[in-house]
Amino acid sequence: MQSIQNLEKIATQVRRDIIRMVHGASSGHVGGPMGSADFLVALYFEIMQPDPHHFSMDGVGEDIFFLSNGHLSAGWYSVLARYGYFDFKELATFRKMGSRLQGHPACHEGLPGIRMSSGSLGQGLSVSIGAALAKKLNKDEHLVYCLMGDGELEEGQNWEALMLAPAHEVDNLIAVVDYNGQQIDGPVDAVLPLGDLEEKFTSFGWKVLTMYGNDMTEVVDTLKKAQWFTNQGKPVMVLMKTHMGYGVDFMTDNHEWHGVPPNDEQMKIALSQLQETLGDY
């Protein structure tokens, strides 16, 4: 078991990686991955603990994760590397020609840890349901996790999937919504309000939990609680309130940091707020 302090240290390094990767590529997304970094670190290092050295596409016999909002790739790649799936020095190739670290995750590039390409939004929950159904057919008792964005919920396919999972009792699935309230064109409530998500998911037949996603203790505790609610006939949804750009003051809660790379000066200030805990790539 990891100490909370250790998980926080890893998350801080992941945030540094994100800033440096997006700066290095002069393109990419910082806001979303910064906000969900605590969740991804907790998920890999404490909750799922998959074997990073024997990655198999089928993921039989271990918990598996799908990133539906593929633009969070920088954060996911950092977590995968820091967890041991590949050498963290490879993070320097992010978004560059010939890299396995494509702008959005690409499962055929041979990067261990990635089982599905994502980027075009709204598809990950359906994929996760399929993988969860395959686990049931295989009598594999491990779980499937999926992270989605809140703005992403505007895609209609999600609601097809949200309807199907309870109807088919896909209760080996934990879906997490990164509820930071921001999307490219502005606050989600200004672009297309989502209404009361907790009520919507509950009425669709999901077991819904809420958590604050930028507090490591709460993230770990809530995910363990979510695990406890699996295999009880309902899929589990975690509404995770986060701050876009969390960890750097001028990026926090600012939708303008959805998909803009920091310049040299901005990177300097950002990194001064994030301690190098595990060594930069």
């Binding site: 089982r115 990950g124 359906s126 993988a131 395959a134 097809e160 199907l164």
Partner: peptide, 27 residues
């Protein structure tokens, strides 16, 4: 047990099919 009625929701069907392959199914 190996037949999945998805309803009138073809986008979801394609995604689920893709997910089923992860685990070795042939959808």
């Amino acid at each position: 047990a190996r037949f999945i009625q998805v309803g009138i929701a073809e986008a979801n069907m394609m995604g689920i099919a893709a997910g089923l392959t992860i685990g070795g199914k042939i959808p």
